[in-house]
Computed example of a mutant assay.
Amino acid sequence: MDVWRITLAALRRWYILLPLLALTGWGAWTAGNGIQPEYEAQATIMLTPGTAATEVPNPYGGLEEANQAVGIVLNSTESRAQIVEQGLSTEYEVVPESRSTIMYFTVRADDPETAVTTGVALIDMVEAELTARQSAAEVPSSSQYGIDVLAPPSVLEAIYDGKLRVQAIIGILGASVALVVAVLFDDIVGLVRRRRRRRKARADELVDSAEEARTDDGAERANEVDPAEGVTTEVPSRVPREPDRPDAEVRSSRDTSPVGERS
């Protein structure tokens, strides 16, 4: 079935399509209102070098390499598990800027307090990661890389992506189901009508055949063949009746006939 036929079927069954679309709209609106918005918090830090020089090599290499390495650690499964243990949101993203010492944090949570707390916990994890790895390499604390918080975690806006996403999904699915139901109903109605027309046509054919059979049978009976003479004798359907004549007229006709004929 092509698009044009589907469109015509939907237009013919508008009394089914429109109520289903209205029900879909109501369901999408209700479901969207039941979803709470998410709150997004952002933060920015910068890695800084140590204050004293040292001959001990840093395990991270340079500051840019340390920035990329710490970003990988915070985005790992182990770090997210630690966030879960603290009861915070795992919907965060750590993005170290390429060829730079700047790192960006983005956190989403159901409430602003959780979003901010998760951002603070991620910054603490950066400090802990830097200290643990450099201390294990015996880098003096005065020579270790540190961090400088350029923008502390703060909620910027409420995000309604989840609400819009749910409404869009319900709307698309509901509209598709409404269209399918309308087209199927149109096909069923068309099938029933075609069957009725075929039955009526067969009944008319049977009636016509019966009438033709009766007509042919009457014609055969009217044209009977005499087996003795082999001549077809047409038997009239109605024998004309001779009109009645008075007895006096009959007698007078007999009296006026010739004598030889009377004898």
Rank of each mutant, 00 (worst) to 15 (best):
P258N: 09
E249M: 10
S98N: 13
Y160P: 01
P57G: 05
T30P: 01
A175F: 05
R221M: 11
S89Q: 05
L47P: 01
G146F: 06
I159Q: 12
E78Q: 15
S142P: 10
T256E: 09
L173N: 06
A41E: 00
D204L: 10
A228P: 02
M125G: 04
Y104E: 13
S176L: 05
V177L: 14
A53R: 14
V84I: 12
E129G: 01
M103L: 15
E220G: 07
A248T: 08
A137G: 15
N75A: 14
V73F: 06
I159H: 09
A128C: 08
M103Q: 02
A53E: 15
S89Y: 01
V250F: 09
R13H: 07
V107E: 00
S141G: 11
L17Y: 02
G27M: 09
L11F: 08
A210R: 11
M103A: 04
R193I: 08
L18D: 07
L8I: 14
Y92V: 01
R214Y: 09
S98Q: 10
E220T: 14
L184T: 10
R254L: 15
L63H: 03
P258H: 08
A203D: 08
V126A: 02
A28F: 01
Q167C: 03
A53S: 15
G218T: 11
D247F: 07
R199V: 07
V73P: 00
R254N: 09
S100P: 03
D2C: 07
E205H: 12
F185N: 01
A201F: 06
M103E: 02
A222H: 14
E157P: 00
S176D: 05
T256K: 05
S237L: 06
V177Y: 04
A69T: 12
M1A: 09
V239I: 11
V189E: 11
S263C: 07
P246I: 05
I16Y: 04
M125R: 12
G62Q: 04
A151N: 14
R198Y: 07
Q68M: 14
R133S: 05
E93V: 03
E261Y: 08
P59L: 04
E55T: 13
A137D: 12
L74M: 08
A128V: 13
A151W: 06
A228F: 15
A151V: 12
D124K: 12
E261G: 11
R254T: 10
G27D: 11
F185M: 04
V70C: 04
S98K: 04
E261W: 09
E91M: 11
G174A: 09
V239C: 04
G190I: 03
T118E: 00
T215A: 14
V166L: 12
E40C: 01
W29V: 07
D111Q: 07
D161M: 05
A132F: 05
S154Q: 15
R99N: 13
A43Q: 00
E224Q: 09
L173G: 11
R5E: 14
Y160R: 13
R108P: 01
T256G: 11
M46G: 04
G62T: 14
P153T: 03
D124S: 15
S252H: 10
T256M: 03
R13V: 00
A178E: 00
M125E: 08
V189G: 12
V239N: 14
V180Q: 07
P59C: 09
E234V: 11
E64M: 10
A28W: 00
